[in-house]
Amino acid sequence: MLKKTALLLIAGIFAPLTFAQQSFFPIWGDEAEKLGYTLPKPYGFSISYMDMSNPITVNSIDLTGHPVLEAIDVDANQADFKGSNITLRGDVWVFPFLNVYGIIGYTQGQSKARINSVSCDRGAVNGIVNNALCSAIDQVGSNLPDNAMFTLDMDGGTYGIGTTIAGGVGNWFALLDMNYTYTSISAIDGNIKTFVAAPRVGHRWEYDGGRELRVFVGAMYQDVEQYLSGDLKSLGLPSELAKAVDALAPDAGFEVSQSAEEKWNGVVGFQYAFNRDWDILMEAGFGQRETLFFALGRRF
């Protein structure tokens, strides 16, 4: 049944359709065409893939499950995130200058942070035993190997909404794309909330048969907030520290808050339409955040 449903969905996306020709959208489309503008077909589906590498700021690491753990301070404020996602997008041009869309997909990634040191605040705990444990953790935490890391695997489903505002003069165009996505992490408790705003400017060339090439440059603003929690063992702590924590509290947990270190980066790319139905888009981002994006689109 699932296979049959998937086949019907694919057939519906890629089969020739005529309903768009009688579509209500885009509003004011006839007026825009009378002024000489060539408009895309109103409805679209696309599949895309993005690869990304991004420095991350670790805002806080809190340990839970025992008073001594709650007194521990982990110094690991910088992390590197590497990940990718694949998404399906459906969109409609509501006005000639305004597109709205929905996104559903899957994201997988991993962040790694070097642990500089681990210390325990003995003034925050009571009792001889707890103070002795704090002293032992201080001893272990101040002699960590240079490659001591904690690792977070962040895989899960992604969904979101967005809008594009576009305009142009002659063959020059400008647009502003904005979207908000939410990723629910499957392996651990947590989520990634991302807001993106990407202004671009470019030039287009039209050819026979509906072919068109657009080349653009721009920037991308990305505000990422990651909230993660789970079993402390899943952090991949150094073995010396993991053994000490396990002996102290086998059910110990963690809570981590992270955000993007650099919110802006530059982008350059192109979009090529084979005809009025099919197009491809490729975009590269450069700066502290590096991205590579591919998309194949179908319009109706």
Rank of each mutant, 00 (worst) to 15 (best):
L2R: 07
E206R: 14
I103H: 15
A76K: 12
M149Y: 13
A136P: 04
L152E: 12
L281V: 09
A113R: 08
G287E: 06
L237D: 03
G141M: 04
V140R: 12
E240P: 12
T57R: 14
I56C: 11
E225R: 08
V125I: 05
L133M: 15
L281F: 09
Y43I: 00
A79R: 11
Q226V: 03
L133W: 14
K193T: 02
S234C: 01
K193C: 02
N85T: 04
E255A: 04
Q258H: 13
T5Y: 15
A79M: 08
L237H: 05
D91L: 06
E31G: 03
L292H: 15
N143C: 06
V58C: 08
Q222M: 07
D146Q: 15
T64W: 05
S53C: 01
M282P: 11
W264M: 03
S259D: 13
R299T: 01
P42H: 00
Y106Q: 07
F254P: 08
S84I: 00
G266F: 03
W93R: 13
V68D: 09
R89W: 06
S184W: 10
T183A: 10
S119A: 11
V129P: 14
T163L: 12
S229N: 09
P67R: 10
A244D: 11
P67G: 07
E70I: 01
Y207E: 10
E262T: 04
G230V: 04
I103A: 13
R214D: 02
E283Y: 04
G285I: 02
T194V: 13
A124F: 00
F294W: 07
I137H: 12
Q288R: 13
G210Q: 07
I161S: 10
A219S: 04
H203I: 04
A113I: 00
M52V: 01
I165W: 13
S184F: 06
D189M: 03
L7P: 13
W264Y: 09
G83C: 02
P16E: 00
D251V: 02
Q21F: 00
S186E: 15
W205C: 12
V118R: 07
P199F: 03
N54H: 13
D246N: 06
F97S: 12
V217G: 13
